[in-house]
Design a protein around this nucleic acid. Structure first.
Length: 465
DNA sequence: CGTGTTTGACCTGCGC
DNA sequence: GCGCAGGTCAAACACG
């Protein structure tokens, strides 16, 4: 009895602490919002001033002259790390036949700049997270199209690359609607660049190779894998060495797992889902168009943030949008949309830590770490049903670490290990990440937005169930 | 013998 | 319509 009381007391205490932290986060978030908005405004005024170097090698432009919306967070003009070059650029962009609904129904994190006035997130979301009202800049809507069944989220619902391709361009009844449909049909991809000696990166999932191909511009063959954890899992990945640096492995994930994942795989999977969702969301959103030459849309922003984050470029194009997480360079966690589209985001996630060949990339590892260690109810994800995972997955990368760190203000020494037995990351990495997150407003904005979205979505999902 | 990989053929989309 | 390139299939093969 007494023990129970004591526990209750602890819980209450914890609850209070969480409330305080939450309000703190909200406050921070709002101020970050303002920073972000400022950055956006500045960028819009001087669109030319800062090219997002990482994401657009010349070839890139040549290759993908299409809609390109880029978003630069931070000031890290490292040209290569995030920027796929010719060879692998194509890799990730590979117009691929793919056109599946992908992560459509999922939580989405995107951008919606300069939209005439329709930047309001769906009201339903608003309700859920009233205190975290979204800025006009970040559109975290669970997407807009409203209905958003939440069952559609599974890429598998629609066989990859074939069934869903009916982007019937026929009627041209409503361009916008049509575009949205087409965008929705795009298969969002998440590409990961990691230094890795082994033929493929161990991400905790089981994969079966089903093909290999020499792609143009890269002497290294590209290998095609599909997830074999579940028979019907639609997730596929492509693995290819970087043409510039053979030690860099570029892994491109596509689709969302339709099954529970082993712990070792959740971080990766949710990260990729998150990125994919972000892409999908971003691509379904209208952006301000700069320099319409050749139909290219290009938008960039640069935050006044610390140098930890680099250029973020989000671009959309007719084929598959791709987010690339660049973990090859220290201090870099990048999201990018090469190919048809490119988003590059450098962060401090991997600071000082170079993922060893068989280890998970630091970013995931740390996210995983923080997540696993800090959750008040341990293993949120582990408890998730597959579908829940499908819904919530997209949040994980962004939100977990930040939530963990900000809410608890510390990094637990507890190290979660993937079932594979690999050590995920040193605690120092987590610290670094925490610092990166807390020190960079832009990154925080994104993360906070993701959290907001997550909260809204999870509420909605819960309501659905 | 079961499972996974290799590899050439085939399919599809896209640009010219 | 044609050719090219990316993506997938499936038979053959290798391995434990």
């Amino acid at each position: 009895m007494e023990a129970t009381k004591a526990e209750m007391g602890e819980v209450r205490e914890e609850n209070e602490r969480l409330k305080t932290l939450l309000s703190h986060i909200v406050r921070d978030y709002k101020s970050l919002q303002m920073h972000f908005l400022d950055a956006v405004k500045v960028k819009e005024r001087a669109p030319d001033d800062h090219k997002a170097p990482a994401a657009e090698p010349d070839d890139d432009e040549a290759d993908e002259p299409e809609d390109l919306v880029s978003l630069s967070l931070g000031t890290r003009p490292k040209p290569n790390a995030g920027a796929p070059r010719k060879g692998h650029d194509r890799t990730s962009s590979s117009s691929s036949s793919g056109a599946e609904t992908g992560n459509d129904g999922q939580l989405s994190l995107g951008l919606s700049f300069a939209r005439g006035g329709g930047t309001n997130p769906p009201s339903s979301d608003d309700d859920d997270k009233a205190s975290l009202a979204l800025p006009p800049v970040l559109n975290l809507s669970s997407d807009s199209s409203g209905d958003e069944p939440g069952h559609v989220q599974q890429a598998g619902a629609c066989p990859p690359s074939k069934a869903c391709r009916s982007s019937s361009a026929g009627n041209g009844a409503d361009d916008e609607v049509l575009q949205q449909q087409q965008q929705a049909n795009k298969k969002a991809r998440v590409s990961v660049r990691v230094k890795c000696d082994t033929p493929t990166m161990n991400d905790g999932c089981q994969w079966r190779k089903y093909g290999q191909k020499i792609s143009k511009g890269n002497p290294c063959p590209r290998a095609y894998y599909r997830c074999t954890v579940a028979p019907n899992c639609p997730v596929r990945k492509q693995v290819q060495r970087c043409v510039d640096d053979m030690s860099i492995l570029i892994t491109t994930y596509e689709g969302t797992h339709s099954h529970p994942l082993p712990p070792a795989a959740t971080a990766m999977a949710s990260t990729t889902s998150a990125a994919a969702a972000m892409l999908v969301s971003g691509s379904t959103t209208s952006f301000a168009h700069h320099g319409g030459g050749g139909g290219g849309h290009h938008l960039r922003l640069t935050s006044a943030g610390a140098g930890m984050l680099g250029p973020t470029t989000i671009s959309t194009a007719s084929s598959c949008p791709t987010v690339t997480l660049d973990l090859t360079a220290p201090h870099s966690l990048s999201l990018m949309h090469p190919s048809s589209s490119s988003t590059t985001l450098y962060g401090g996630a991997a600071a000082g830590y170079e993922p060893s060949s068989r280890a998970l990339p630091a970013a995931w590892s740390s996210g995983y770490l923080a997540y696993g260690s800090a959750a008040p109810q341990p293993y949120y994800a582990a408890k998730s049903t597959p579908s829940a995972f499908g819904h919530f997955g997209p949040m994980s990368m962004a939100a977990r670490p930040v939530v963990a760190e900000q809410m608890y203000g510390h990094t637990t020494p507890y190290l979660q290990r993937p079932s594979g037995g690999q050590v995920v990351a040193p605690a120092a990495v987590t610290d670094t990440i925490a610092k990166a997150i807390t020190s960079d407003p832009s990154f925080q904005s994104v993360l906070a937005a993701a959290i907001t979205s997550y909260m809204g979505r999870s509420g909605g999902a819960a309501a659905q169930k």
